[in-house]
Nucleic acid binder design. Structure first.
Lengths: 232, 232
DNA sequence: GCTTATTGTGTAAAAATTACACCAGTATAA
DNA sequence: TTATACTGGTGTAATTTTTACACAATAAGC
């Protein structure tokens, strides 16, 4: 094998599609790039992977740097490795998505390569830098599919939420209207929603009951019913 | 940024879980390693990705080198990047699965790093080299899940097949018995199975009707019904 | 107390899924 | 030729799940 001397540079990166839900809209976290290439464009947050770092760790690090959050469930969904996806040369990127509760109090840290970070609705996204539009679309599709067999919606909502909020979130992700009565019937039939003795506050109309997601009941019910991911 | 001089070596590889179906059993294609580490162990076929090669291309190349097949549908399912997954140092691997029709006539080429290649039932796999057991399990689970919303079984069967063969394949993948009458009713109700005027030959019992998968009808029926992977 | 906006609820029809058993056809052996 | 062994092929009823659909109850703001 011929030995070649090259400037060492990590050839992989992580890109993150970070979903949040606010004001009835599904949003993702984007950064505005400070440098070329794609200066001033919006892009998915991401970074190169360090040499002594696993890819899961790297994904968590990036999310933490941006939001200050720890222990958020992230899920890898695809790896993009077309030869020319990056003008700087061959960079393979592993894409993750995360679901977080948007807290408008929390300050977003843009990091050294970005002018700023912002929440942007998934509905009227402009063209993103690199192949990030494709990455986003792929991630959004995985999220949709996953919603049908995992209770991921609860990671996007505040701890206490109303059934209407839950329904709006499903509608935002699936991009279609759902029937209110059937939706509530179905959700309640699962048995892992816990009705609280509390109601919405500060609304100028009839306040709705609050619910929370009962993780314990969920795992009891679904320990092996969804049955597909069982070990072999 | 400090410039470091290092011997260049690709840091990614591709590993393939190649499924086939033969004698009522689901099998995968394995190689027996010729060199250390893990000499003589069974492993998934894989290789480093060349610098001027996209990851999809690399996956196709590996499959082609092994089986001589072209144009096989491959699907990426996960990327494994734990720091210590490979004793040689940091190697991130992108895993693909492929579904092929086992043709016992076709010779398998083991390639320069393997003593031989073989089909092995998924049911009594020994421990595989590196983290390949984990990779296999992950891929098998994805295959199962995918079976429920895509007609992938047809890629594993010969062009003409009986309903019993189709059912055995489903049973092998899902690892459970299915009811014959309900299974047939359901499959036929989809409308993309074409009944042929032909029967099984050389069997020592009543010969079954042969069917084939009608790809055209399938896409007509499911153009947007499965609706989830639509563009945004 | 009137208006306005949203919550919360039930039933009937249709569709999909499940459970279940026996006769028909072909090859082989007696 | 007859019997045997084996697999192919078929229908119905009960249950469960999904869908479609409309109005009274409640709270806030005026």
């Amino acid at each position: 094998m011929k030995e070649q001397l090259v400037k060492f540079e990590s050839e992989f990166s992580i890109d993150c599609v970070i979903f949040g839900f606010e004001a009835g809209e599904l949003k993702i976290l984007l950064i505005e790039r400070k440098n070329e290439p794609f200066m001033d464009w919006l892009a998915l947050p991401g970074d190169l992977v360090e040499n002594d770092e696993g890819i899961e760790e790297a994904a968590e690090r990036i999310l933490h740097q941006l939001t200050g959050l720890h222990d958020v469930h992230m899920e890898q969904f695809h790896t993009f490795g077309a030869v020319n996806r990056h003008p700087r040369g061959r960079i393979i990127t592993v894409a993750y998505y995360a679901l977080i509760r948007i807290d408008s109090q929390r300050e977003l840290k843009a990091g050294q390569f970005a002018k700023r970070a912002l929440w942007h609705s998934v509905n009227d996204l402009p063209k993103l830098a690199f192949d990030h539009t494709e990455i986003f679309k792929t991630g959004f599709n995985k999220l949709r599919r996953r919603l049908s067999y995992q209770p991921i919606a609860y990671e996007l909502l505040p701890e206490k939420f109303t059934l209407t909020q839950l329904q709006q979130l499903y509608e935002a992700i699936l991009n279609k209207k759902l029937d209110k009565r059937n939706f509530r019937k179905k959700m309640l039939s699962y048995g892992f929603l816990k009705e609280l003795d509390e109601k919405q506050k500060n609304v100028s109309f009839r306040a709705a009951k609050l619910y929370k997601f009962d993780r314990r009941k969920y795992s009891k019910i679904f320990q092996s019913e969804m049955g597909v991911d069982v070990d072999i």
